[in-house]
Write a protein that binds this DNA or RNA. Structure first.
Lengths: 212, 212
DNA sequence: GTTGAAATTAGTACGAA
DNA sequence: TTCGTACTAATTTCAAC
């Protein structure tokens, strides 16, 4: 799940060989942290910031790309300056058994920045950026509503984007927070059992990392 | 509106000087199109792909950065491979007059990838990526619920991300769609007046671009 | 806004630890 | 695996047109 146009988890060839890829160590994560802030940094400068040799940086950099952990490099722009100052979310109810058509139609809509299938009241959420409110209205009533697979929509506008990170990493934690290691669970520790079990299970699953 | 941590529209200093920035022409947009797909391309190669000279490409590239149209360069990663295979949306109802505190708390949460203030039933939408479902549960019940500014939350899980573009541009239009130019409105054209007015108004506003 | 040449920097390929 | 260095290729800068 959570695949982008089905190009990650089972991309290779042989079925049965799940692409586990690299085990990301602390150095890999540090590289990803630096690249998140500056995707155009030279590998030489990257090596210095991470604290490894240039050759090592090249090796790891290439491995992360080849592995698919790094999908691509891109820019981040100011939508307002680009002329698309209005952002809206459209929650879509999809007619059952028309998912394939729904996806096909979306592929034809370059003005959509993001689309995800969700649980809950609606089936999908679409994020669009347009020049003005009227353009959103046109999109929803004339384009989306005409897709047979779309049963209903609900539109909300985004008034402000408080934060938008390119991505988050397992190493991103709240300032004062210490790394939550899977404690070896010493029997006899005086903690509420119910809560302990819950937290323990969560940590255990967190170890597995893939196959979600 | 739609500012990222208040760093775009009114960033400079003097009030009254709205940062209009560049007028983006077709070449600027083409540069942004190329950089969206390959943020690490050399300016030399960029020039070739856009069909302009090297020096021109450097000038425009620098202008876009200095202007703030390009905010930064970054990478795109595979969340599953990075160990955060679960994505969730948390819709938050914020207690009135506690917005400042709400924003302050969010700034302390590096695990949040995206947060936007919305119209509609809820007040804000937060997107988070975690290692497992239990971690989402912990985040919502123990971190978010403990923020006084948070009155209520509603969580949905993302089952699949159908598409995710770094950004959209005004030039992104559906394959067969022709560029909708603000036609000079020749009086006497035989179109339904009501509709005409509506579309005309929309196009007019699209011209303005900022101050939305 | 364009072209061409110089200086700098980046990327590659080794052997050694 | 990782590091250090030397080699090659490319990019950026700067100048003149």
């Amino acid at each position: 799940m959570a695949d982008m146009s089905g190009n990650s988890t089972h991309e290779g060839g042989q079925p049965g060989r799940i692409g586990i890829g690299l085990e990301l160590d602390a150095t890999h994560l540090k590289i990803l942290e630096v690249l998140r802030e500056n995707g155009r940094i030279s590998v030489a400068a990257l090596a210095e910031r991470v604290g490894i040799s240039r050759a090592n940086a090249y090796t790891r950099f290439e491995a992360l790309r080849a592995d698919g952990t790094i999908k691509r490099f891109t820019a981040e722009i100011d939508h307002v300056r680009a002329g698309l100052g209005i952002t809206a979310l459209v929650f879509v109810t999809v007619r059952q058994q028309m998912w394939r058509q729904f996806r096909a139609q979306l592929a034809q809509m370059p003005e959509v920045e993001y689309c995800a299938i969700t649980t809950g009241q609606h089936d999908a959420m679409i994020q669009v950026r347009m020049a003005d409110v009227a353009a959103v209205h046109t999109l929803v009533t004339e384009r989306l509503a005409n897709i047979p697979a779309v049963k209903a929509t609900e539109t909300v506008f985004i008034l402000d984007e408080v934060l938008k990170r390119p991505y988050v990493l397992p190493t991103d934690r709240r300032p004062g927070q210490t790394v939550r290691r899977p404690v070896p669970d010493p029997a006899g520790a005086e903690v509420p059992l119910g809560k302990m079990r819950f937290v323990g299970a969560a940590e255990g699953r967190a170890q597995l990392q893939q196959d979600v």
